[in-house]
Amino acid sequence: MCQSAMQRLLLTAAVLLLSGCAMQPVQPWEKGDLAKPAMSFSVDTLDDHFTQHIYNSKENASGGYGVGGGGCGCN
């Protein structure tokens, strides 16, 4: 019973996501706020490079941001 409810929930979520209409799609003329620099996922390239480089040399985890960045002897 519980499993069936869970399956239903998951399926609904998947259908909503896949059909891309979980909500009314945002129209082109409504994208003023999304156009703000702070809403971008890459605001400051050099900042991102530096921060990721530092964490890469002091921590073990990395990845998720992109592919094929140059390595270094720091880790």
Partner: peptide, 29 residues
Amino acid sequence: MRATPYKLPLRRWTQSLVALCCVLVLPLA
């Protein structure tokens, strides 16, 4: 909630959901 399998109603429900989405999206397209 019943323990009976929901297979058929679920599929129908899914289809109507997809249809509804299409109806919502199409006029804009």
